Lab assay of single mutants.
Amino acid sequence: MSIQHFRVALIPFFAAFCLPVFAHPETLVKVKDAEDQLGARVGYIELDLNSGKILESFRPEERFPMMSTFKVLLCGAVLSRVDAGQEQLGRRIHYSQNDLVEYSPVTEKHLTDGMTVRELCSAAITMSDNTAANLLLTTIGGPKELTAFLHNMGDHVTRLDRWEPELNEAIPNDERDTTMPAAMATTLRKLLTGELLTLASRQQLIDWMEADKVAGPLLRSALPAGWFIADKSGAGERGSRGIIAALGPDGKPSRIVVIYTTGSQATMDERNRQIAEIGASLIKHW
């Protein structure tokens, strides 16, 4: 067993022997301040990774656009098919120029040779490549099948209805392509620590998230040296922004954090800054 596999296998073990965790309302004060600064709703939840206990939450059962955070769930569904012998990570998928959609920095470079399922998941999570996500959605049967996968996990809230990039439209009061912070946090925890996926697939999923290259201005910008984070960000229309993450000190994750916002007129930089400040408060009061 590799060191990384050992780390993920012992996530519940280490967490069980940690000192009790206590909620700190100071972080919620910052979440509410972010709402004021952005002029928009902000949803927040913080779960203990081992027990699933909610440590703090704000608007945990209000719907927010998922945006690209759905790509972690998508690759979880792909990995479940791999575990069941219905898919192979090494299978190569070929596609054409007509398949390319807006923001496809990886797939646009491989029109000639195609990409493997493993490479597509890596591109979808680490670079948020939209064509990679659409190609992977095709392998599982489309958005409705991802929703069905989530329902089978016990998540009857999260739903995907459309493809990239239309799913980022974020129309107010439109339930399409949305989740709730509580539902997303619980589902992410199941994917990373539950028995739904094999140990190898859980490790692969967290490795992809740990290698995320496009979430630097968010929670990662607030992390002290030595902290662990595996995350996936999302951005959408109407001032929408979000991030889902597993993080913790001492090089291992111990909490799940989900943050979503929508309806702001603020710039992307300002949305990023507010999420980073929430992260800084979380870490300060850990």
Rank of each mutant, 00 (worst) to 15 (best):
W208L: 06
G39T: 10
A133D: 05
K190R: 15
V117T: 07
G141L: 05
K30T: 12
T131I: 02
L247I: 15
P181H: 02
S254W: 10
I244A: 08
V214I: 07
A230G: 12
S240V: 03
I275D: 01
L167Y: 00
H285E: 09
E210K: 10
T126L: 08
I275V: 13
N130G: 03
G226L: 05
N173V: 09
S240N: 07
E164M: 03
R255C: 04
K213A: 11
G114K: 04
E102L: 13
A148M: 11
A183T: 12
T193R: 15
G234N: 00
D48C: 06
A215E: 06
G142K: 03
F58C: 07
S254C: 13
L28E: 06
R176C: 08
V31G: 00
E119M: 06
P25T: 12
S233H: 01
A123W: 02
R271L: 14
L136Y: 00
G39H: 14
T139Y: 07
K53T: 13
L191R: 01
L219R: 03
R59Q: 06
Y103A: 06
V82C: 11
W208H: 03
Q204S: 10
R271M: 14
D269V: 11
I259G: 02
E119P: 00
R91K: 12
L160K: 03
V72P: 13
P249V: 07
G114Y: 04
E46M: 13
G242V: 00
I45R: 04
N272S: 09
K30H: 08
A280T: 14
E145I: 10
D177F: 03
R162K: 06
L150H: 05
M268N: 08
H94M: 11
E35Y: 00
W227C: 03
R92V: 14
D174H: 03
D129P: 01
V42R: 00
A123H: 03
L197V: 06
S122P: 04
P253R: 09
G90T: 14
V106D: 08
R202S: 15
I140N: 05
G234C: 05
Q274N: 10
L79P: 01
E56V: 07
I45Y: 14
A211I: 08
E61R: 13
N134A: 01
D207R: 14
K53Q: 15
I171M: 15
D161F: 02
L73T: 08
R255S: 01
G239F: 05
R63T: 08
I259A: 04
N168D: 05
